[in-house]
């Protein structure tokens, strides 16, 4: 009990003092997980579109992959991305392992099925009639896509939030492909693990606060974006 109270107090003072390293780790966390989420949207959203709009023979298979991929364990992703990026692995030439880029890639792999599966579900909800209606009103294909995105924006933003939430909070893959290198690949989750193992519970508690606030803050922004036209 004592450690809890003491930890929280010290955590607060660490936060208020604006420790430069903690600040740096926080910024890196946003950059890495933000990039990974952006990447997963670039891949996952078109994929979700395709799955929702285009019937093709392998569709049930791909849909089941996307749905199962929502539960992809981060450590498994970390292991496989590591295998790919090792110096003597297939992509070893790029020298990406233990860099933030490797973390972005691994996290994007984790988030993409989430974005794809959830955006597919959201778009399917619109149904065939909305699509036909849009086309009947004379929309060009690009306009049609944009209108569909607008119509399904609640679900699509929910998909983005789920993707970001998944990657900002995962530790296994980031640890494995990033290596938790100080000043280079250390993010909030890996730093928390390290501080706990070093017995610095106060710092770990401070980091966990930041992580919670960060995850909530970004989700809050997205929620505002999602709900801003709700009253209409």
């Amino acid at each position: 009990m004592r450690i809890l109270v003491q930890g929280c107090r010290q955590a607060l003072s660490l936060l208020l003092a604006g420790d430069p390293e903690i600040w740096e780790i926080t910024c890196r966390t946003v950059a890495v997980s933000g990039s990974a989420t952006a990447l997963s949207v670039l891949v996952g959203l078109p994929l979700g579109f395709m799955l929702a709009m285009r019937p093709f023979r392998a569709r049930p298979l791909v849909v089941s992959w996307a749905n199962a991929g929502m539960g992809l364990p981060p450590v498994v992703v970390g292991l496989w991305v590591s295998l790919m990026l090792w110096r003597y692995g297939p992509l070893g030439r790029l020298g990406l392992l233990y860099t933030p880029v490797a973390m972005v890639l691994a996290q994007a792999v984790i988030a993409t099925p989430l974005v794809a599966a959830l955006s597919m579900a959201g778009l399917q909800q619109l149904g065939e009639r909305v699509k036909l209606q849009i086309m009947a009103l004379g929309a060009s294909p690009v306009q049609a896509v944009w209108l569909m995105v607008r119509e399904a924006r609640y679900s699509l933003l929910a998909a983005v939030m789920a993707g970001f939430g998944a990657v900002v909070s995962e530790v296994g893959a980031s640890m494995m492909v990033g290596g938790n290198i100080r000043g280079h690949t250390r993010v909030l989750t890996t730093a928390t693990v390290l501080e706990v193992s070093k017995g610095n519970f106060e710092v770990a508690i401070a980091l966990s606060f930041i992580l919670l606030v960060l995850a909530w803050g970004i989700t809050f922004l997205l929620t505002v974006l999602q709900q801003r036209n709700y009253r209409r």
């Binding site: 950059a31 890495v32 990039s35 990406l96």
Partner: peptide, 15 residues
């Protein structure tokens, strides 16, 4: 988003 990725890439590629 692309720019974001590129910045991170660039920052990491001095190996």
């Amino acid at each position: 988003a692309l720019l974001f990725v590129l910045v991170v890439l660039g920052a990491a590629c001095r190996t």
